[in-house]
Amino acid sequence: MPHDNHDHPHALLPPEPALRVKALETILTRKGLIDPAALDEIIDTYQNKIGPQNGARVVAKAWADPEFRQALLEDATPVVADLGYYGRQGEHMVVVENTPEQHNMVVCTLCSCYPWPLLGIPPGWYKSDSYRARAVREPRKVLAEFGVTLPKDTSVRVWDSTAEIRYLVLPMRPDGTDGLSEDELAALVSRDSMIGTGLPKVPS
């Protein structure tokens, strides 16, 4: 297959992106290759059903249940699958735990790999050139732009998702959360704390 064709077929479609999408959808629908109702279903799935609330439930359970946490850190894929979180872009899950000694942060410098079944579709900043370029070289400056400052003696480990392994950060459980239910704990888990660019909320 030629890999450098300077006469790219996409140039035949309208240049304005919304029209380009519409044109392709129309052509494919007319040929019976896509079903617009299936598109609605895909959008509904990622807009309303699958999102960071899934990952938050996993984190809250790990905070509340030491055996679950241990199993999660050893082999996350079957453990989260048992909770119903498996599927596209989450086939091979690894959970990495933050400690006072080490903070974890996840990026995909080559494209936009992200654990969809646990966090949904990645936010715009995760897919931006700036995050992809800088997270590996200057993670502490990037964290500062998210308002996160780590103690000097905490090391940073950045995970570049270069294969089909998807990473979820298990943040540290905030102080003052003894006695909270799993639901109350899950409400403290922000999306960014599971990417490693944020910290969990502190209970009010």
């Binding site: 080559l110 931006s128 050139d129 700036s130 992809r132 370029a133 590996v136 732009e145 570049d160």
Partner: peptide, 13 residues
């Protein structure tokens, strides 16, 4: 683009 210079700060949504 990992490690590239010049992209500047970003403003997370």
């Amino acid at each position: 683009m990992g490690g590239r210079f010049g992209d500047g700060a970003f403003h997370p949504e």
